[in-house]
Amino acid sequence: MISAQSVTRTIGGFMLGPVSFDLEPGLVYALIGPNGSGKTTLFRLLVGYLRPDSGEIMRFGAPLLVDDQDQTRRLAYVPEVLNGHDNWPVSQVIEIYRRSYPSFDTARLYDYLDGIDRQKRFNRLSKGQQRRTMLALAMAAQTDVLLLDEPTDGIDPFARKDMQQAIAEYMDIGDRMAFIATHNLEDVRALADVILVLENGRQVGIWPKDDLTEGWQRLWLASAPPRALAGEVDRQTGAGIVVVTNDIAATQIDLANFGIGVVQRQAVEMVDSLRILIDRQSDTVP
């Protein structure tokens, strides 16, 4: 639906890329990376606010052309820093969206904006309300693609849950795709299907989310195995012999062959498995 082929872009001393990916309809992609990793630059490239220095971006089967209205109407973007509407009443911001997007669903929007005074000026809303408003506008636009930069930043836990639910409902209609930059692993858990990691402008990897949890276990062993176990991705010493595996079934067979008992086992948190995968990936990239 949206693809990037060896895309690079330099801004000041910072270089993004090369990034390459192919985002498929029906899936939610989470973009994870520390601040300054290039997430916002990548989004601005995909929206067409920036042009790549090299490489190619394709949207809906055609090369990205900045002035292609047809392509633009099929995509809604919520940036991390909200501005441009500061002094306008919310109702006027709504009017702009209604005119820009042919399938705009006003009834749905009013549902989303429940409790927000539409006569207020945008900059008089709380930070969380501003974010909710922009996200609601993007979803009510009923586009095929949503690009969201930190959509739940500054939002209370209840509103966050509602937002996750709303994004899941958005994804339930047709063959839509969402690409969401987030620092929040709760969002990743509730929404993502595939995880893309950026670090210092480099694309570190793309993993199906369930590959970060399924089969992963941390095992405390009764004695040290003579070699690395099948499925072993990390070994720590400290309180006994601790092995992290990403293929517990294979590891168990191996342990049985060595006659080594498991003292304790624990699920591995997604953030830990992600760290291990990122470090392994970084080791193999020159």
């Binding site: 639910q165 409902e169 509730a190 989310k209």
Partner: peptide, 14 residues
Amino acid sequence: VRMLASNLGCSVIT
């Protein structure tokens, strides 16, 4: 499949 995935914290692929 989307709502179930969201509830369980897994992906729609699963």
